[in-house]
Design a protein around this nucleic acid. Structure first.
Length: 429
RNA sequence: GCGGGUGUAGCUCAGUUGGUUAGAGCGCCAGAUUGUGAUUCUGGAGGUCGCGGGUUCGAGACCCGUCACUCGCCCCA
């Protein structure tokens, strides 16, 4: 708990967190694996600004969406422009696509990561500043893109050892024509049963009827059971498209559950929608989610360009990964000078070792007992003890902190003596 | 935005129906050992009991407000 203070509040702003220690390590681990895999799939990194003109988001997400209507961090800058801290990645990437005239080189495959901001009520797995990794393919209307993007997600979750924790749910919203027909059918159906709908769903009926399908209210669920099914509204093209996606998943041996109630509210979505869901995070069980958004770029004022992608929540992924399974840095070599006269030499030796690629902990203070104690705490493999007596003979004492054995080593043999510790990555035990 | 729970040391938590200077374990610092760590022993630092107000002779305990976290709803990654 932060201590009470006069003056500025020392608490972090609600819903924000400092990332350090195990969490920082886990984030870095996820990011490294993610970047590596994304590159294997032929994606290039894109890093868009953390804030954009407010227009970028409210035009694309829709004025009535919750994100736009009550969750954005919007502000006016000193020039009077309305800016918004990005609540999601896709709109920024779509904007970058248009700004940079990238329609010359389709398809564009991107990946990115970074903080997002939403003014929400914080809970576990839901904060006001959170971090996402993101994958997009722009300019590919083929189902193969859907399959690849899903394969990328599965590869990531597999390499993070999380496939056992999640299930893939997938659905198709069909193309615009199918989707609108279905939407109308839903409105007709639910309007006829208004008296049985929950308060929340009555609102959804106005703003976002598809959302009623995944209501958690028992009364709603009973109604949804008998509601029209989206699969009955696919036109031939939509049906065929979805069959190809599913066939692709089958060919790759990817398990999935068809969930006809999995929907996207926003208007630019079409065809494939999917979520990787876990039961281990309570109400915030969606760990990675995405879909096809063929209408987005055009809606923003760009050339009609298909798109598909997904985003995953870093915090949610990290929550599922035990810190014990995250590789740690190689154990260091500790440098222990004895007495002030040896400090200059100690720094010199530390520098040599570091230049050679070792991770080196230099101790600054205390008698030898203290310094060794600290070396031990730093998990050092070896302590290079540098004392006047040995230096006079051109030697140092190197002590193995695992077995306690020590031996004198000539100054010019130190690197050779320690080379076995170079670039060792160990699992925390 | 709505409803429930929680808030005592760096961490995990005790704290009796309100009663003197608020405790433990772990961690941290120091000494036993001024050139040898992980064990042990001894000592020490660290809390306006989340914050503000109220009730009371007396509040960490009770009441109100507020902030933060947490669970569910909503929404979403």
């Amino acid at each position: 708990m932060a201590k009470a203070q006069k003056g500025p509040k020392l608490q972090p702003v609600r819903g924000t967190h400092d990332i350090m220690g195990d969490k920082a390590r886990t984030f870095q681990y996820i990011n490294k694996i993610f970047q590596d895999i994304a590159k294997r799939f032929g994606h290039e990194e894109i890093s868009t600004p953390i804030f954009e003109f407010t227009e970028v988001f409210n035009r694309t997400l829709g004025e009535t969406s919750d994100v736009v209507s009550k969750e954005m961090y919007s502000f006016e800058d000193r020039g009077g422009e309305s800016l918004t801290l990005r609540p999601e990645y896709t709109a920024g990437i779509a904007r970058a696509f248009i700004s940079n005239g990238l329609q010359q080189s389709l398809p564009c495959k991107f990946f990115g990561s970074g903080p997002m901001f939403r003014y929400e009520r914080p809970q576990k797995g839901r904060m006001r500043q959170f971090h996402q990794i993101d994958v997009e393919i722009l300019g590919a209307a083929e189902p193969q893109a859907d399959i690849e993007v899903l394969a990328l997600a599965v590869t990531l979750l597999t390499e993070l050892n999380l496939m056992a924790n999640v299930r893939l749910e997938i659905n198709s919203l069909g193309d615009q024509e199918s989707r609108h027909a279905y939407r109308d059918a839903l409105i007709t159906y639910f309007s006829a049963h208004k008296d049985k709908l929950s308060k929340d769903s009555l609102l959804r009926l106005e703003k976002n009827p598809l959302r009623i399908l995944d209501s958690k209210n028992d009364g709603d669920r009973a109604l949804v059971e008998k509601a029209p099914r989206i699969s009955d509204y696919y036109n031939d093209a939509s049906k065929h498209f979805f069959e190809e996606v599913i066939a692709g998943l089958d060919a790759l041996g990817i398990d999935y559950t068809l969930n006809e109630r999995l929907v996207r509210g926003l208007d630019y979505y079409s065809h494939t929608a999917f979520e990787f869901i876990t039961n281990d995070l309570g109400a915030q069980g969606t760990v990675l989610a995405g879909g096809r958004y063929d209408a987005l770029i055009e809606m923003m004022g760009g050339p009609a360009t298909a798109g598909i992608g997904w985003a995953a929540g870093m915090e949610r992924l990290a929550e599922l990964i035990s810190p014990d399974l995250v590789p740690v840095e190689a154990r260091p070599i500790a440098i222990v000078p004895v007495g002030v006269t040896c400090q200059a030499k100690a720094i010199e030796i530390a520098q040599q070792l570091r230049s050679a690629g070792h991770r080196v902990e230099m101790s600054y203070r205390g008698n030898m007992a203290k310094r060794l104690k600290r070396a031990n705490k730093a998990h050092a493999n070896e302590a290079v003890i540098i004392g006047e007596d040995e230096l006079a003979r051109g030697m140092v004492m190197i002590k193995n902190l695992n077995d306690g054995k020590q031996q004198e080593v000539a100054l010019d043999k130190i690197l050779n003596h320690l080379k076995m510790y170079l670039s060792l990555e160990v699992k925390k035990s």
